[in-house]
Amino acid sequence: MLKINNLNAKIDKKIILNNFSLNINPGEVHAIMGPNGSGKSTLSNILSGKKGYDVTGEILYENKNLFELETEERAHKGIFLAFQYPLEIPGVNTNIFLKTSLNAIRRANGEKELDAIEFLNLVKEKAKNLKFEEEKLNRQLNVGFSGGEKKKNEILQMSILNPKLSILDETDSGLDIDALRIVADGVNSLRKKNNSFLIITHYQRLLDYIKPDFVHVLINGKIIKSGGPELALELEKKGYENFN
């Protein structure tokens, strides 16, 4: 589904990703763990199409060159990024934003757009599953939301947009244990044969709730070790510094 070959990324001449390679097949859950500044967020930014990086190498998504796709086209084709810091957009109603987004994606895929009632029913159901207060959906997008609410809002959007490849960029940071469980449940309920996940995290604790198929350790822009879920536990024990 996603093949990253020898990806190099620089920003202002500073090397952030260095010959980074990764292969994700349909249905797999990958976790990337790394210390601060290892290049985790750069990876998610590049996958989602954020500009400002000097990039070489290759990223294939469903066998197509990802670099040829605009940010929104990537979204149309099923790539979803749960932002580490979800943006506040004043004046824009959360529900309206979600509906615009969902229908843009459906339209791009030749599906029928949902009308207001169909949409509201869908949102209600998803919000209930995630214990997300419906009242918040009538507020301005992320404005005045707590850190945890913003993250839950990202997962809600994910469950509504039903992406093929979900990238969770430090979604666990700033969450208390209950919120963490709700977020994990949300992710787990989306795990299907064809849906893949890339979970970027600093800590192992999220992986207690979402069992990854593969764990990769990212240090200085490079994967230095890959393995199964046990690698996360090893890392937690040793710490990044002694891990070599």
Partner: peptide, 14 residues
């Protein structure tokens, strides 16, 4: 902000 635009585009809006 570029970030706001990027956020909306990531959700499929042109």
């Amino acid at each position: 902000s570029e970030d706001q635009l990027h956020y909306c585009q990531q959700r499929g809006l042109n």
